[in-house]
């Protein structure tokens, strides 16, 4: 543990001790770290800040529903080779000219140990994580076209995020460490806000936070506001010069909070907040 830098969060990113432990354990044992948590709890940001803290390059692989595991390794551009052959180009003789390295390849061969972010892995097809098992385990793969074996010079630090849209296969999970980022409590949230908005009036912040938590605890909200929405809201409050006294703390009047649109993003939720609590409960 001594020879390695310890991650403790950074000036711009407040990491809970548990999260720091998870990152350090993954770093030390060279296991991929799977991060889940509510949207807006800073899953993606973690990889960015980790890379910054370690002064390592960040390689980001944004997963979409059409992403294939193979694309992360390399792609063989057969079509342009075929075209070149028709045009009589010299490049055609060497197949390596048409192999395009993917993100994993670049991560494996980087000079310095990189942080590899596989973002929103749950967006991909069900088979996607299984297709990557071997590569993440051995940190090596074979290029069939050239017979070349691409091996990791040093195992990259792999951070994987998921939003729970699909369940991940057990075999894949077994190879990862798993951490669930909890929604920060009031104290942590205050620390986070301090990082982003150091000049905010403390009284305003206290009131805003208490209003924010009342909104979050309102029953049956479809989309609870998260940290990033809180920060946006506070920025707006500052820009509009809302004074400390103007934030209603009465639960009945949550719908009348100034600039609520920054916190509540769907029409249904706004309507829900507008109706008194009693009516919301009657529907059970």
């Amino acid at each position: 543990m001594t020879e390695q830098a310890l991650f403790k969060g950074s000036e711009r990113y407040i990491a809970s001790p548990q999260l720091a432990l998870a990152v350090n354990a993954a770093m030390h044992l060279q296991k991929p770290l799977l991060i889940k948590g509510e949207p807006g709890t800073g899953k993606t940001l973690l990889a960015e800040e980790l890379a910054a803290a370690l002064a390592a390059p960040l390689l980001r692989w944004q997963i979409k529903s059409t992403t294939k595991a193979q694309q992360g390794l390399y792609e063989y551009d057969a079509v342009s080779r075929l075209r070149d052959s028709q045009l009589g180009s010299d490049k055609v003789a060497d197949i390596a000219n048409y192999i395009k390295p993917g993100v994993l390849w670049r991560a494996f061969t980087a000079d310095q140990r990189p942080v590899l972010l596989i973002d929103e892995i749950d967006k991909a097809d069900i088979e996607f994580p299984n297709d990557l098992l071997h590569e993440l385990d051995r940190m090596a793969f074979q290029v069939y076209e050239t017979g070349e074996l691409v091996e990791a010079r040093q195992r990259p630090l792999v951070v994987i995020t998921s939003n729970n849209e699909k369940e991940l296969p057990d075999a894949f999970l077994r190879r990862c460490f798993f951490h669930y980022i909890e929604f920060p409590d009031a104290e942590q949230l205050k620390a986070i806000v301090d990082v982003h908005l150091p000049d905010i009036d403390q009284q305003l912040l206290d009131q805003a936070l208490s209003a924010f938590f009342s909104v979050r605890e309102f029953p049956d909200l479809k989309k609870k506001p998260s940290t990033s929405e809180l920060i946006d809201w506070l920025r707006l409050l500052l820009a509009e010069r809302v004074q400390a006294g103007q934030l209603a703390l009465d639960e009945q009047a949550l719908a009348e909070l100034p600039l609520l649109g920054a916190l509540i993003k769907t029409e249904q939720d706004q309507a829900l907040l507008a109706q008194p609590l009693k009516r919301a409960m009657r529907s059970y």
């Binding site: 001790p17 548990q18 432990l21 998870a22 354990a25 799977l34 889940k36 057990d170 999970l173 077994r174 990862c176 460490f177 798993f178 951490h179 669930y180």
Partner: peptide, 17 residues
Amino acid sequence: GFYHLARLTLVKDERFY
């Protein structure tokens, strides 16, 4: 710390926390 480490390595879904 032991608790968090054990959870990190042994549990792979927040439903099982």
